[in-house]
Design a protein around this nucleic acid. Structure first.
Lengths: 201, 201
DNA sequence: CGAAGTTTTGTCAATAGTGACAGAACGGTG
DNA sequence: CACCGTTCTGTCACTATTGACAAAACTTCG
């Protein structure tokens, strides 16, 4: 189902994707996400159901398109952070390198929290988090000289960072006012808590 | 899809579950997991497809039945650890409180690593990990006096512990010799790496 | 035993998601 | 423009899941 976000090969396919995105948003806003079938979206966009699934692995992928895009930025931003910087700072900076469309983000965030099938969203969120962790791990491996021997610690570290960021994000998604500043603040708090050492003793 | 592992209500349903479990294992071992359809399993067990799905949320749930059972043990074992013990020690001890059927575990583990649709398994694994993290978080909240104010740090800590354990488990699943001792060793290593502080500076 | 209530199943009908294969469109060449 | 190789789509067929509703099996009580 997942990881098949076909890169915009040609102009034609990009047009199709856009049509699907639009059609989906209209339906989602008008009648709700769970009440919209993939078939309706495809029909509205004037393509076959199969084509819909070629562009978006699932109906819910449409809601996470911005996360996926953000992830690409994140990877690149992370790679271009100065070598000496602490991991937490790098991550913090890289997360907000993406030019978020606050309107869109909060609109979708509101959609998500409504009558959306929670398990679907949560599942998808975990998937995004996993990708995020991979990005962090790649970054760590790049920065570590003896990376080969430290596979496990590096993986663990990456996943902990991801866990922190997404824990912050979840709190944010459930909060009243969803501003980017709040999100940054929450992520920083979460990351700081692992930087200062976890209360595990 | 998930969290609906209907508790064995009556003897009859338990018999059905058992029949399904058996039928599934036979097929899985004989022809592979992805090559076995839910319909075949149901037919072999002499019930309708719908009934299959009433007992197991999905085909892959059958492979994770022992994880689910283990999780119950884990929760209880965690709750009964002495108050003064460090989190890492408690978790470590609680994980292995479950009377694992080594045969079954390694048999299933071998099934998993074969031609199994990786994305399915990985997804399911993340789900189990999430449940595990919840268990750890509940435990931490129970042990922390001012838990209410530390929701985020507690959540982050719990997820980091879960991330560590499951990172170790993944390494184990991909290793040659899969003994419980190896698993314990890997989990300890992973947990220790967060206990000693993550290399994030 | 037989009626009433509860639990489990089966049947029906949809939606979600995919693999395989053939036809349509598109871009570049001679 | 006709031809060829690549990319994108549509169609078909099938498995995975789930909600709704009715029939069957099991229990309990009189």
């Amino acid at each position: 189902m997942r990881r098949m976000a076909s890169p915009p090969q040609t102009a034609r396919s990009e047009r199709t994707r856009e049509a699907l995105r639009r059609a989906a948003m209209v339906r989602f806003l008008a009648q709700g996400v769970e009440e919209t079938s993939a078939e309706q979206i495809a029909a509205d966009a004037g393509v076959s159901l199969r084509t819909f699934y070629r562009h978006f692995g699932s109906k819910h992928d449409l809601l996470f398109a911005d996360y996926d895009a953000g992830l690409q930025w994140f990877r690149r931003a992370l790679a271009s952070r100065p070598p000496g910087e602490s991991l937490v700072d790098s991550v913090q900076a890289a997360i907000f390198a993406f030019p978020y469309d606050v309107e869109a983000v909060t609109q979708i965030a509101s959609l998500r929290s409504e009558e959306l099938d929670p398990s679907r969203i949560v599942r998808h969120m975990r998937e995004v988090q996993s990708d995020f962790a991979h990005a962090v791990r790649d970054h760590l491996q790049r920065r570590t000289s003896d990376a080969a021997e430290k596979t496990l610690p590096i993986t663990v570290t990456a996943r902990c960072v991801a866990a922190a960021v997404f824990a912050g994000m979840e709190v944010w998604m459930q909060s009243e006012e969803r501003t980017l500043a709040d999100l940054a603040e929450l992520c920083r708090t979460a990351l700081t808590s692992i930087e200062d050492g976890l209360p595990i003793h």
